[in-house]
């Protein structure tokens, strides 16, 4: 009786296992492919994320190394052609990096020091176009106009006419005044200096200088 009962139970168990296996198979057939796909996708995303992080880190390191090389050349008082080559390479290869901002600013200064005002304006113009933040772009445009002041004051005035944040208004207006004096447009220059003084964004020393320039242009000297 007992043996019969065991057999019966065994039969029950076998049947139950089979059913479970069957259910599992059915479930796998239904969900297996999407599960595999999901897992594969997760792996791809994870790998991509890691890869992107690693790429970003590597790019940042490479940009830092390129900047370091530029600084090294600067310290060794390299020729402007070498600085331009190193600087341009950094701007081309790491244009979206913060090091491009620093390099463009420094390179433009060297170009101005060697009298290459148009090149300096071009370098800063690149920064105006590529800067990711407004303060950087506005600073670059101010300096671009300053570089252009030497050879093309008319174009420089044009650059300073565009909309600018409150913080840069005084500096833009002062430079516009200087350029207009140079172009012989005294009344407009005086107006620009007055605008610079009215904005109230000048340090005391700069303010004094603008007041002197305003008096000079008003007295028609």
């Amino acid at each position: 009786m007992m043996a019969a009962r065991h057999r019966y139970l065994g039969l029950e168990m076998d049947r139950s296992d089979e059913e479970q296996l069957q259910r599992l198979n059915d479930w796998w057939r239904r969900n297996g492919p999407s599960l595999m796909l999901g897992a594969a996708l997760a792996l791809v995303v994870l790998a991509g994320w890691w890869g992107f992080g690693a790429w970003q880190e590597r790019s940042a390191q490479m940009a830092a190394a390129a900047y370091s090389e530029f600084l090294q050349a600067e310290r060794q008082q390299a020729e402007i052609s070498e600085l331009e080559q190193l600087g341009q390479r950094l701007l081309d290869d790491h244009g979206s990096s913060g090091y491009a901002v620093l390099t463009a600013m420094r390179l433009a200064r060297h170009q101005m020091d060697t009298g290459a005002y148009q090149s300096a304006a071009d370098t800063l113009g690149w920064l105006v176009e590529n800067a990711r933040e407004r303060p950087t772009a506005e600073l670059a445009r101010l300096r671009q106009a300053r570089a252009l002041a030497q050879e093309d004051p008319e174009q420089a005035v044009g650059l300073l006419g565009s909309d600018v944040s409150r913080s840069f208004k005084a500096a833009y207006a002062e430079l516009r005044g200087d350029l207009l004096v140079d172009l012989g447009r005294s009344a407009e220059a005086a107006e620009a200096y007055r605008e610079a003084l009215a904005v109230n964004g000048l340090a005391p020393q700069s303010r004094e200088l603008v007041e002197i320039k305003l008096r000079a242009v008003e007295s028609g000297a």
Binding site: V101, M105, M112, D113, R146, Q150
Partner: peptide
């Protein structure tokens, strides 16, 4: 870098 970048041209 920002400080080094400040310069004026001969006309100014």
């Amino acid at each position: 870098a920002l400080r080094v970048g400040g310069a004026v041209v001969p006309r100014q």
